[in-house]
């Protein structure tokens, strides 16, 4: 089942933020891989480190954040320590990115055509007219109606959902093999979210593009992802095939997450919730980060940090397994 060589391999990645009151470890020793054409969902609460992981992979961590350890490899080649200019050539061409808010992702002063053509010509030898034709194809592919009329429109002339389609077109412009989609639908209307997710899924399947889909929407994951990684306080709590994680969540945190999702057709009076809140980066407890909130906590959880180990169909970092 597993491909001989994963497209993206992240090993023991650590991301830290130096602050005046000491260094904060925002992502603490996480490892995972993404196979070619695979959709990996990454879920977690705000601040769990999922967006930072995505930013680290494309080499766009906002300073002072920095990669403090570990390796990121694309096709076996290390990309976490590349000089800026070499990494720039990978961005867009090998790894595309889609951000949360389509309203602010496009430069308001330039026509869509210009932003597309510029991106296409950055990565491929094309004449302006060839690039323009390609831009038109892309707009068609992402489902912009009457694309040839809209090519020379400005971003403010599009609605939010249409803008996110343009953003997807831009991310796909150079046919990257991996797309980091950081909460691509969070800022959109619920009715539009499903369309965008379906579009992203279909386009990536057509082109064999792998996706790292960062979200906190379990429903999106269930529908889209092949595998899912659950992050908690900068660590991976559980990672495995979607069906295994959703149907038989092992980690108490994943279990709690699943319990907090309302199921249609099964009315319940009150949704279960996980008591407490995710610890701040300055206050991550010793041992398992989840231990203060865990219903099944025991002695070992307070002193020793669990590593990811196979349990059932997935890998879980919990001393219960």
């Amino acid at each position: 089942m597993a491909a001989p060589q994963p497209l993206l391999q992240v090993d023991n990645l650590r991301i830290e933020f130096p602050t005046r009151r000491g260094t904060l470890l925002a992502v603490d020793d996480i490892s995972f891989h993404i196979d070619p054409g695979e959709v990996l969902g990454v879920v977690g609460e705000s601040g769990a480190g999922k967006s930072l992981t995505g930013a680290a992979i494309i080499g766009l961590l906002d300073p002072p954040g920095r990669i403090a350890g570990g390796q990121i490899r694309l096709d076996g080649r290390r990309i976490d320590n590349l000089p800026y200019e070499q990494m720039r050539r990978i961005r867009g061409k090998e790894i595309g990115a889609i951000f949360q808010d389509p309203l602010t992702s496009l430069n308001p002063l330039y026509k869509i055509s210009r932003q597309l053509v510029e991106t296409i010509r950055t990565h491929a030898e094309m004449s302006p007219s060839q690039a323009r034709a390609r831009a038109l194809e892309l707009l068609d592919a992402v489902g912009i109606p009457a694309a040839s009329d809209r090519l020379d429109a400005y971003p403010h002339e599009f609605s939010g959902g249409m803008r996110q389609r343009v953003v997807i077109a831009l991310a796909l412009a150079a046919n990257p093999r991996l797309i980091i989609a950081d909460e691509p639908t969070t800022a959109l209307d619920v009715s539009i979210q499903a369309q965008i997710i379906a579009l992203l899924k279909q386009l990536c399947r057509d082109h064999g593009t792998a996706v790292m889909l960062v979200t906190h929407d379990m429903g999106v994951i269930a529908e889209t992802a092949d595998r899912v990684a659950v992050m908690y306080a900068g660590r991976i709590a559980e990672i495995g095939p979607v069906a295994a994680v959703i149907k038989q969540a092992r980690h108490p945190y994943t279990h709690g997450l699943m319990g907090s999702i309302p199921a249609i057709g099964h009315p319940v009076e009150q949704l279960t919730q996980i008591d407490g809140a995710m610890p701040r980066l300055t206050e991550i407890p010793k041992g398992c980060a989840f231990n203060p909130r865990c219903p099944e906590v025991f002695d070992k959880c307070l002193s020793h940090r669990p590593d990811l180990r196979p349990a059932g169909g997935s890998d879980v970092s919990c001393w219960l397994f």
């Binding site: 720039r88 961005r91 992702s105 430069n107 991106t119 950055t122």
Partner: peptide
């Protein structure tokens, strides 16, 4: 600091652009 600059970088545009 804006998103569209970050997105422009994510598209691999040169620093000059």
């Amino acid at each position: 600091r804006t998103d569209y600059i970050k997105f422009a970088r994510a598209r691999g545009l040169s620093n000059f652009a």
